[in-house]
């Protein structure tokens, strides 16, 4: 799916760019964004190292076991394939909490660590597991209790009540999250989305 989306974006850009006479801009955007990507990744090294260090302390102290117990009722429903005290749970919870608080700098390292742990439990290393999709759905539809970035923008542009949107943001985010969980649970049962799972399974058995 990501293949088609990606290919369509590139193809449409070049065709439309040619029609609009904007090919130089398209080329420039491609080079600029390639450079930006590296800047983003390099900017992430330090923050990533810091949070992975903190997470390792959490793991070694066993605090993740306590967290696992607390969230067990919810996690059992959302991620039935993942053992409650697996490190993936802690990383996912921290990622989602960081999203709730609008702390995107902290969210990414936890999220990447969570994916790493989920992949350890994944049977087909090239195919997304149900838990991965549910986690990403929760992540991309995350409720933000403190939308810090946008509040910052509103303050800087002279809003009389910058925090007025917190309530509406939480309501809209809750709807998105509910739909995300339902959609991921319904879609994961559809044959269309399980073809790839079976195909790779057969392939690896042949090998």
């Amino acid at each position: 799916m990501l293949n088609y989306v990606w290919f369509s974006l590139v193809l449409i850009s070049i065709i439309v760019g040619a029609i609009n006479g904007k090919l130089p801009e398209v080329t420039k955007a491609a080079f600029d964004m390639a450079q930006t990507s590296v800047n983003i990744a390099f900017g992430l090294i330090g923050i990533m190292a810091m949070w992975l260090g903190i997470l390792k302390i959490a793991e070694d102290s066993g605090v993740d076991k306590i967290i696992a117990k607390i969230i067990r009722p919810v996690s059992k429903f959302l991620f039935p394939d993942i053992p409650a005290d697996h490190p993936a749970m802690t990383a996912m919870l921290l990622n989602l909490s960081a999203n709730w608080l609008g702390l995107s700098n902290a969210a990414t390292p936890f999220g990447l660590k969570a994916m790493d742990e989920l992949q350890k439990l994944n049977e087909n290393k090239e195919v997304a597991s149900n838990s991965m999709v549910t986690f990403l759905a929760l992540n991309t539809a995350a409720i933000t209790f403190i939308p810090a970035t946008i509040i910052g923008v509103r303050i800087s542009l002279g809003s009389a009540s910058p925090q007025a949107i917190i309530f509406t943001t939480i309501v809209a985010g809750s709807c998105a999250t509910t739909v995300a969980v339902i959609a991921s649970k319904v879609f994961q049962k559809l044959p269309v989305f399980n073809k790839e799972l079976k195909a790779t399974k057969a392939e690896s058995e042949e090998k």
Partner: peptide, 19 residues
């Protein structure tokens, strides 16, 4: 290294639309 994303894209987009 996940290459086949299964229902991740439709799930994400439906959640976005709902939001």
């Amino acid at each position: 290294g996940i290459k086949k994303t299964r229902h991740a894209v439709p799930t994400g987009l439906i959640a976005d639309a709902a939001g």
